[in-house]
Amino acid sequence: MLDLYDFYNKMERNKIMLSFKGDVTSELLTSILQIMEAKLENLQEEAKVKKKVYNVLVECLQNLYHHMDEMSANTDIVADDIDPKVTRSAIFMIGKQGEHYTIITGNYIFNKNVAGFKAKLDKINLMDKQQLKEFYKEVLAEGGFSEKGGGGLGMIDIARKSGHKLDYLFDPIDDTYSFFNLTIRINQ
């Protein structure tokens, strides 16, 4: 049996306000954003903090959403090999420790995409505030978006608004998949 109390304690220690595991749909995001907005309201955060947390949260969750779509639509892999439990499933947690908000997301990624994605994250992590601003404008003006309108700007925007480096880890699972962990701390 699942040790529920252990589970509870881990979440309590990490001051998790909300967590979810499963399929990330548009309806789910609408509900989660409404819940988080109410929580931020109840915590009586300054308007500035509320906006920042909300903004970064929207980007993090919509990144997951668009990523799920891309995973399911991947045509390089034989349909039989695509496990819907893997491609449509993700985890996220939102916590507040002291004065910092933390957003943690986890999702499967194809091993073949890891190197390219890692290079992109590292590039962003080397930039300071001003460089991020310039890079954002460059990518915005150039376009280079996927059809869904996601990609490209999301991670740059998260790094820019959160004021912290993108803390990430790729956990190898098997020959096909790794599990991508992303932790975002938000400066108040």
Binding site: K51, Y54, N55, V58, E59, Q62, L140, A141, G143, F145, K148, G149, G150, G152, L153, G154, I156, D157
Partner: peptide
Amino acid sequence: LEYFNTSSSKCIL
């Protein structure tokens, strides 16, 4: 606008 996501930012452009 109160908020906009990066996916909207391209459309606004």
